[in-house]
Structure formats: C-alpha cells, structure tokens
Amino acid sequence: MQPQNSQYAIETRDLSIFYGPFEAVKDVNLKIEKQKITAIIGPSGCGKSTLLRAFNRMNDFVPTSYVKGEILLHGVNLYNKEIDPVEVRRKIGMVFQKPNPFPKSIYENIAWGARINGYKGNMDELVEQSLRGAALWDEVKDKLKQSAYALSGGQQQRLCIARAIAVQPEIILMDEPASALDPISTLRIEELMQELKKNYTIIIVTHNMQQAARVSDYTAMMMLYEDTRSGTVIEYDKTEIIFTRPKDKRTEDYVTGRFG
C-alpha cells in the first residue's frame, strides 16, 4: 500500500452499490479534485446520498449493502478487506441533512470526536479553532458549556461542521447540509464552504440547482437507468460547463428545469 501522491482527493472506479439484490448505484467513475467543491445533483431517488455515503463507508450500517468496484483514497481502495472503516471516517468527515449535534454541551460536541481520536494538544485551543473555522465562534464563545440543543438550526449545522473539522479530515461530505435551514442560514453555510475549501476537499449532495451552480467547482449529474432503476453519473465536468453547455441532453433538461 504505497501512498501514491495522487492529484485527486478521491476516485471511484466502476463503483456499483447494492442493497441486497438491488443495484442502487451502477458503474460510477469519478475523480474528485483536491480542495475543490464537487456537487452531486440529480432527481430524487437516483442514488446521490447512497453514493456520498459510500465514500466514508456509512452504508456499512445497512446490513445487506455491499459494493463492487473501487473507491481510491491516495490510491488505496477503501473497500479492501484490511481497511478499517473507523479510520476511513476519521479521514473523511460528514455533515448530515438535518443538524444532529450530540445531546452534550457545545464544547463537548467538538471535544468528543477529538478525544476518541487520540488528540493530545490543547483542547480549548482546538475547540476555538474549529468553531472559528465554522464561523460560529463569535456567536457561542460565551456559552460553550450550554447544551448544543439551545442553538438555532443554522447554528447547530455549523456546529456539526465545526465538529467534523475538529478531527482534521481531508474530505468533508455534505448531504444536503442546508435543506433544513432558512435562506439566511443557508447563505452562511455556503460562504463557510468557500472558506473551508482552502483546506479541505468538499463533496456536497444537493437538490437545489442554484446552490450547486453558486458554490461548486465541479458537478456530477446523476440519473436513473430507465430499465433497472439504478442510478449512475451521466455527466461530470466543471460546474460552469454543466450549467451552460452540457453535453448530455438529459442534463440540459434537468438543469434548465425541463425535466419531468
């Protein structure tokens, strides 16, 4: 397992994801650029979240799920037998659709992940840095001991982002991180993502096409195969190309809102 100095943050090769006999995602080949934001778009039920969750092996918790093909991080297939999913998730963090802080204090929400991962430095410093990194510090610095549930939805989501960056991952997966938030909170999350991409690679699943166009550098368009109902990536390119002169007719229909 020699770590290749890959130019890509993560790649998939002929990746198919199964739930029992059902092939939810089929033959995906993606090369995700480092320190860029890549959006995955497409109609509901086409396997966007399934694909996203495959990157940090969250699908492992569905007992019948398995994958074919490879996901390569630094040239190492994450689905090799000897790969530890716990390690994978430390390297590839995740922010979920609905904010899900732990029922602990704001401080503990961030410190917990660092602690279980063997962080040895100054915890106060790490908490402050992470909260600053998530643009939340100024709002919560006086109430770090309060329950995270006391925060607003948008603040909770930024806390979840702070929690993710506290363990210093390389990649952050975001599963419709703003879909449960109001427009102002959404805007703040989007601004934050622009800050974060200086240090991290971000992959975001979104339903909102304007959002994909606004924030992402690259976009992957997913669709269902008519016959098998499996999802796949039909087009992957720079975002401006996808939204202005896509090669695939279906992409054009979808991004211009003409799709079913």
């Binding site: 530890d84 279980i116 063997g118 962080y119 430095g121 100054n122 790490l126």
Partner: peptide, 20 residues
C-alpha cells in the same frame, strides 16, 4: 496548529488497534 497534535500515522495504527 492543532493538525500536528494528532498521533502520527504509525502511532495511529497502534492507537486504533487499542481502541478496537
């Protein structure tokens, strides 16, 4: 910077094994 206070790669292996 916090990044460097996590265990190094080889150390991390042992650490994760202990947790397991």
């Amino acid at each position: 910077m916090a990044r460097y206070t996590y265990p190094e790669e080889h150390e991390l292996q042992r650490f994760v094994q202990a947790r397991y």
